[in-house]
C-alpha cells in the first residue's frame, strides 16, 4: 500500500511544476516555484539538477517520479 498514493502525489507535484502542461519541467519552471515554496533559487536549481538524472535540462515525469519515490521511501523507512 502507499505506492499508488505515492504515484498520485508525484503526478500532482509534477503538474504543480509543469504549469503549462508541456509534459516536462525546465529549470525555469522550477525557479517559478520560488514564489510558492520556502526555497531559494539556488536550492530549486539544486533540486532540478538532482532530479535531472541524464542532465539534458528537461525533467520528465519518469525522472520526477524516481526522485519522489526515493524521497518517499527514505522518509517511510
Amino acid at each position: 500500500p502507499g505506492q499508488l498514493d505515492m504515484l498520485k502525489k508525484a503526478q500532482e507535484f509534477f503538474q504543480t511544476c509543469d504549469t503549462e502542461g508541456k509534459g516536462f519541467i525546465t529549470k525555469k519552471d522550477m525557479q517559478r516555484l520560488h514564489n510558492e515554496l520556502p526555497l531559494s533559487l539556488e536550492d530549486l536549481e539544486d533540486v532540478f539538477d538532482t532530479l535531472d538524472a541524464d542532465g539534458n535540462g528537461f525533467l520528465t515525469p519518469e525522472e520526477f517520479n524516481n526522485g519522489f519515490s526515493h524521497f518517499f521511501f527514505s522518509q517511510n523507512n
Binding site: L39, D46, H70
Partner: peptide, 29 residues
Amino acid sequence: DPNMKAGATSEGVLANFFNSLLSKKTGSP
C-alpha cells in the same frame, strides 16, 4: 570532500523541496 558534501546537501534539499510541496498541498506536513 566537497563532492560528498554536495551529495548530502542535494538529498536534504530534495527532501526539503518535497516536504514543502506536501505541506503546500495538504496545509500540514
